[in-house]
């Protein structure tokens, strides 16, 4: 009797479409991953606003100041009575007095020796304030920045998504 030679073929799945899809997925997640998180502090809960649309072009000449309550949990639990508001700049926490000194240095470093920042290169101060921080403290911060001759401010808020 003649037996067919290929009674059992090794079943080989075609892997190409699967690999294609997997690469597509990887590309998708890679593009969407948010690396800018690095400069954002997770302790800060930004206030929400439905008008807070992301800027079309990122601000080029900007300093980011993050203002928040350092002992928020302790105040909430009643351990501390007074809120301690601190400002984070460039990875370090400052009180207002020290921040001013730091900003003067920063401004000099950015605007060059003659301290004349032209209009186009004007430095924007991005203020990322925690939603529970006192408005007076934010104003104090703005005042402090004005003393250091910063004029443009951007108050940052998180986009409120309505479903």
């Amino acid at each position: 009797m003649k037996i067919k030679k290929n009674t059992r073929e090794i079943a080989e799945g075609d892997l190409t479409p699967m690999i294609d899809m997997t690469f597509q997925l990887i590309a998708f997640f890679m593009v969407l991953i948010n690396f800018t998180q690095a400069e954002q502090d997770q302790r800060i809960k930004l206030p929400l606003s439905e008008l807070a649309k992301p800027p079309e072009a990122p601000l080029e000449n900007a300093v980011t100041l993050q203002i928040f309550i350092d002992n928020k949990e302790k105040v909430a639990k009643g351990i501390d009575k007074e809120e301690i508001t601190v400002v984070r700049f460039d990875g370090d926490d400052y009180n207002f007095v020290d921040l001013k000194k730091r900003l003067i240095v920063e401004r000099q470093a950015r605007s060059g020796p003659n301290d004349e920042a032209d209009a186009e290169n004007e430095i924007t101060v991005i203020i990322r304030g925690d939603m529970d921080v006192q408005a007076g403290k934010v104003q104090e911060l703005i005042k402090l920045c004005q003393d250091v001759k910063f004029e443009k401010f951007a108050l940052r808020a998180k986009q409120e998504v309505k479903y």
Binding site: L32, N34, L59, Q146, F153, R156
Partner: peptide
């Protein structure tokens, strides 16, 4: 990438010009 993926709400600015 799936594990590290987190949908983050976009942030926007309110511009204020306040010269001293």
């Amino acid at each position: 990438f799936i594990m590290t993926f987190k949908i983050v709400a976009m942030e926007g600015d309110f511009n204020i010009k306040m010269p001293q």
